[in-house]
Nucleic acid binder design. Structure first.
Lengths: 130, 130
DNA sequence: CTGCATCCGATCAGATACTG
DNA sequence: CAGTATCTGATCGGATGCAG
């Protein structure tokens, strides 16, 4: 796609780099940008996990949002959903290879956050104090 | 990813990894998760840029959202806003060191998108076809 | 040129209640 | 246990008009 070209290469033809709905970055952003998605992927880094276990680790998430997020990630091929025919029901969620490839990004995100959050907080305080 | 502080009503929850509003990752996610923010940061990778230039490169963004995004990023210390006292007005936006440190993540995001978008699209098609 | 103010529809997400 | 269904307030974001 056009928007995949970097800014430096875009001078000749395509000056508009983002905002195209078909842009891969846009699609990924819709997923990475989703708070719950990132949390789910990050939580599943440790291995397969049940629904309730996920709900516990991601405190604050409602059943509705958790289910919605899991379904979307499943549809995107980032995780698998395995239903065991037992009573009580047991459903396991596990990252696919594709999902695990995202972990690098998620980790990078976390690392940046931990490293720079103080700077951001200070900048905000300084801005608000003007 | 452990958030050191936890919600007041869930003191004993040690396994809760995300979801705390004070969690650094949450704050960063609020920024990275914002579609326009990522586009602005990515666009400014090439150097300082004027308001209109940004609007053109990020096609589809409304003045309202562009301004809102720029203000937020400025407040977070990710970019600087320089007003030149000329007529007509000229305002330059430029990434700070902090902002440039985010470029690594943005690039990683774009790279992942370009690399795996086909797999995601196929997974979606397969899911929808069931 | 670089915005800000306002209106308004669309979507998101939390709370709550209920079920196989 | 693992969800589904519904209601509702909050937020997002586009369109429009105007100003310094």
């Amino acid at each position: 796609m056009k928007c995949s070209t970097h800014l430096r290469d875009s001078v000749l033809v395509e000056t508009s780099v983002y905002a195209d709905k078909g842009c891969p970055s846009r699609k990924v952003l819709d997923r990475i940008g989703d708070t719950w998605s990132v949390m789910v992927v990050g939580s599943l880094a440790d291995g397969p996990m049940r629904y309730t276990e996920l709900a516990r680790r991601i405190s604050g998430v409602s059943p509705k949002m958790l289910t919605q997020t899991l379904r979307t990630l499943e549809r995107d091929g980032l995780l698998t959903r395995t239903v065991h025919a037992v009573v009580p029901p047991r459903v396991d969620y596990e990252l696919t290879g594709l999902g695990r490839s995202l972990l690098t990004l998620v980790d990078g995100l976390r690392l940046w956050a931990e490293t720079h959050i103080d700077e951001v907080t200070e900048a905000q305080a300084a801005y608000d104090a003007r």
